[in-house]
């Protein structure tokens, strides 16, 4: 996973609630067997509308998505995170994220930041009025900064540590291989198996 420390970039204000993962990346894109190449599928249906905010020239190169509440509801598809990253987004700000999407994002180094809806509104107004306005997402200071906005945010300390250092979860878990083996030795014999042990 890539490290995330501090990022500054222009924003895309997305005034929609309940942006589900079928909107972020439609199902027909999920047939790909790679983690890359999803950028053209991002918000595919909405992008067919020329006036959709992502299509506007002044939003090209924006890296921070500021979205409405309940962002990422629906399917567990990690492709939604890959699509946002493949397109160039580094951070997403919303007042509420769906759990699975949030977990997926933080495992891939896409920082999802929860801020109060009033702060989200302020960021929408700022970035709608001035497409060149930049937002800084600072994981070190746990703070979002923009003109007229300084907003602290919470993030689980363990998750923050993994992101700041770009650590791979599996390697960390495997350091506890002895604990796993000890747990396995104590599992009840009636638990089902899908096939005989080789």
């Amino acid at each position: 996973m890539e490290k995330f420390t501090v990022h500054t970039g222009r924003a895309v204000p997305l005034r929609r609630s309940n942006v589900d993962t079928d909107q972020i990346i439609p199902a027909h894109w999920l047939k790909k067997v790679t983690r890359t190449g999803f950028e053209d599928g991002l918000f595919e249906a909405w992008r067919r509308d020329e006036s959709f905010i992502l299509n506007r020239p002044e939003r090209r190169g924006a890296t921070v998505l500021v979205a409405g509440p309940e962002f990422g509801t629906g399917s567990s598809r990690e492709h939604a995170v890959w699509a946002l990253q493949n397109y160039g987004f580094q951070a997403v700000i919303s007042s509420r994220f769906a759990d699975i999407f949030r977990g997926n994002s933080l495992k891939n180094g896409l920082l999802t930041v929860v801020l109060p809806q009033s702060t989200v509104e302020a960021l929408w107004e700022l970035t709608e009025a001035d497409p060149n306005a930049e937002i800084t997402v600072d994981l070190v200071a746990r703070e979002v900064r923009a003109e007229g906005v300084t907003a602290p945010f919470e993030l689980d300390e363990n998750v923050r540590w993994r992101l700041l250092n770009g650590l791979d979860d599996i390697s960390i878990t495997l350091q506890n291989a002895d604990d796993i083996a000890a747990f396995e030795a104590g599992r009840p014999g009636f638990k089902p198996r899908t096939q005989p042990v080789a």
């Binding site: 399917s75 995170v81 997926n104 495992k107 878990t173 495997l174 291989a177 796993i180």
Partner: peptide, 20 residues
């Protein structure tokens, strides 16, 4: 519960998941 692909890989490799 449903999990993402990174977690699928984690379970395949370790049969465990770190969970909040």
């Amino acid at each position: 519960f449903g999990i993402g692909t990174s977690q699928v890989e984690h379970v395949l490799a370790t049969q465990t998941l770190p969970l909040a």
